[in-house]
Simulated scan of single mutants.
Amino acid sequence: MVFYISLTSWGQNQQCKVSTFEGEVSYGQTYRHAINRNLELVLDPLPSGWLLRVLPIGKPRPQLDYAELATPPYQSVTPLAVSTDFSFRAQDAIAWNPRNFHFVAASDAFNRLMMAYNNYIGAQDSVSRRSAEGRLTSLVQQTQSGELRILDARIVAGTADQAGLAAMVASHLSETAHSVVATHGEPISPLGRITWFRFRISLWLPEKDTGNTVFCR
């Protein structure tokens, strides 16, 4: 079963609001929630867990989605992955809580960010790379903010020692409600598995869905 509760409250900027919704997702399941008339937040199932994405509604999936592009580092440990990737055990993944991320809420901002990213990865020398990196960093700093908070979880705990990268961010296991489920005779993997979790997501959004870029923190 998947459900959500939508709430809205005002932020400090009168052009902005905080949209908050709650839901739950089981292993292998997809969760979707419309952000505005053009975008939706998706918890995309992976063999290792889920990846939080922000995607255009009714359009082809871009090379990098609207959250992935706005939440560096790229191809590395990311708050968008509620998963056992990068040697995170299941208990480490839910102990990274809450998770802060960024996203773009308008196509014009996404196109500018995508162009800056392509210029950065395509730079041929150190000077142009530094310039492209500065432009990319500046645009990322202007993106919208989001928070994912895990409210409860069920896990098959991993047996491996905690990895160094996990230890840097996964510090709230004792404060995250969770239960360890039985494997019914199945072998327990070193990293374990998240079988279900319930969450609250907050997004700082423009108050009016005009299609123009308004930056909310």
Rank of each mutant, 00 (worst) to 15 (best):
I121S: 12
E68C: 00
R32T: 11
L113W: 04
R130F: 10
I188D: 06
Q12A: 15
R217F: 06
Q124L: 10
P47E: 13
N97Q: 04
F197T: 04
S26H: 13
D125C: 11
V104Q: 00
I121K: 14
L51G: 09
V140F: 10
C216R: 04
A177N: 14
A105P: 02
T176E: 07
S76N: 15
N38P: 00
A153T: 03
Q162A: 14
I94L: 04
H184K: 12
G164K: 07
G28M: 01
S107H: 08
G146P: 03
G192M: 02
V25A: 01
L205E: 05
A132D: 01
R61H: 06
A167P: 00
N36F: 13
Q14I: 11
L205N: 02
G185I: 00
S48Q: 14
P206V: 11
I194L: 05
A160F: 03
A166Q: 05
S145E: 08
S145V: 12
N36C: 10
L173D: 06
P79S: 03
R149W: 06
D85W: 14
W50Y: 12
T20W: 09
V181L: 03
E68T: 08
P62Q: 09
G11L: 09
D161M: 08
A157N: 08
Q15V: 11
L52Q: 06
V82D: 02
G134C: 08
G49C: 01
A93Q: 01
T143M: 11
A93C: 05
S138Q: 12
A105T: 08
K208F: 10
Y4G: 10
S76H: 14
Q124G: 15
S6N: 14
E24R: 06
H184L: 10
G28F: 01
A157W: 07
F21E: 05
V180W: 04
Q142D: 15
S26W: 12
A157Q: 15
S171L: 09
T84V: 08
T195E: 09
A167I: 04
R200Q: 13
